[in-house]
Design a binder for these strands. Structure first.
Lengths: 146, 146
DNA sequence: CTGAATCCGCGGGGATACTG
DNA sequence: CAGTATCCCCGCGGATTCAG
């Protein structure tokens, strides 16, 4: 069913846009909900966390170790977000040392492909970009070279 | 040439890692430079700005209008970053009303593909995610339903 | 072990004004 | 038109502490 209300677009006032048609789903529009997905993808950790889940279910601490530098708070927050998005399943095992496993849903798996593509791109083109950095910084060494 | 020093990894102390081999270029490592690329990609605007450039060169104001909600400051900043990364070419025409055009480089074009894939994903799966939101919020309505 | 809750600094990023 | 410079707010996110 899923009735989509234009939450967040209401404060614009003038435009009475009750719902979004599929044609309106271009991420370049300001109030467009699909932009929220890009925002989520764009957050610092989502890409990395999802990336660690392609090998099957993993425990909280396990993921934490895989993604170097992530704090407990951010991992929890990221996982909650992904769970809310329906991209990750959270399973709690009632044991004495609590065990929680996270696993990609079917939808989550579909996201994995483009994400891995990005990952691959950043690895493959690191050399080019790094070279470009030096060139740029060299060319623009006119001010503030410290 | 591009000598890559392990900046940021030195404070780990124990591991004496002087430089990165290609095998070390996994974005999950903390100090890994390829992570910086993901960070750049992950910033709020890069995806959208690059996405507007697939139709050929565009002017500053033109891009600004296409990406709803972006401020002039952020657009400038994003474009500078992309230029430094060697993903965008900046061309200034010495005219009376100054005209500046931005255009994807070859490297920039290679990034376009995975980025468009993400864009497409966010559009295609918006329905699923939106449904998941309602389900999640409904299930977890135990606290703070306001 | 898996989290929730709190404190808080820093920087992202918007608004505005000014230059070439 | 295409920026640069400045002010300043707010929220991201790290560190720490407490709970089941």
């Amino acid at each position: 069913m899923v009735t989509i209300t234009a939450a967040g677009a209401s404060e614009l006032g003038t435009r009475a846009k009750p719902a979004f048609s599929l044609d309106d789903l271009n991420p370049y529009a300001d109030g467009c909900p699909s932009r929220r997905l890009l925002d989520r993808i764009g957050d610092k950790w989502t890409v990395l966390v999802v990336g660690t889940l392609d090998d099957g279910p993993r425990r909280f601490s396990d993921i934490r170790r895989s993604v170097a530098g992530i704090s407990q708070k951010m991992l929890t927050q990221t996982l909650r977000g992904l769970e809310r998005d329906g991209l990750v399943n959270r399973t709690v095992y009632a044991e004495v040392p609590p065990r929680v496993e996270y696993e990609l849903t079917v939808a989550g798996t579909t996201l994995l492909a483009p994400l891995k593509a990005l990952e691959r791109w950043s690895i493959e083109h690191f050399g080019d970009v790094s070279a470009s950095w030096e060139l740029y910084d060299d060319t623009h060494a006119d001010s503030a070279e410290s």
